[in-house]
């Protein structure tokens, strides 16, 4: 058990937490945060596993760097879409339950 392997395993746990948040939470912003946690878990696995096997590996690190930038852009786009959806429908979740209308404009 080395430190990079611990990172990779923590990444697996983060993936699980993120998946649970994605399934269980109904507010769209929370879903987005949960999705990002899942993505961070994937990044941790991607960096930790090769480092455990053969020392620092720049190839997965570069891929993760690419992934982080794409994740930021995708998150920003998702926030823009969520805000647009909120303005059009007044809902903060996709299910349309009355409970999700809190804070919605009258």
């Amino acid at each position: 058990m080395t430190a990079p392997l611990l990172y990779a395993l923590a990444g697996a746990i983060l993936c699980g937490i993120g998946l649970f948040g994605l399934l269980w939470l109904s507010h769209l912003l929370r879903k987005l945060v949960a999705f990002n946690i899942m993505g961070s878990g994937v990044f941790l696995v991607l960096v930790g596993l090769p480092q455990h096997q053969g020392g620092q590996d720049p190839v997965p690190q570069a891929l993760v760097l690419t992934g982080i930038v794409v994740a930021i852009a995708a998150t920003a786009l998702a926030v823009v879409l969520i805000r647009r959806y909120y303005h059009l429908s007044g809902l903060t979740s996709l299910t349309g339950e009355p409970a999700s209308r809190e804070g919605a404009p009258e």
Binding site: L5, A8, A12, I13, C15, G16, I17, L19, L23, V45
Partner: peptide
């Protein structure tokens, strides 16, 4: 489901 997902992932890692 999430625990088993994490578990399978950790096992494969």
């Amino acid at each position: 489901a999430c625990v088993s997902f994490s578990g399978i992932l950790a096992l494969s890692i």
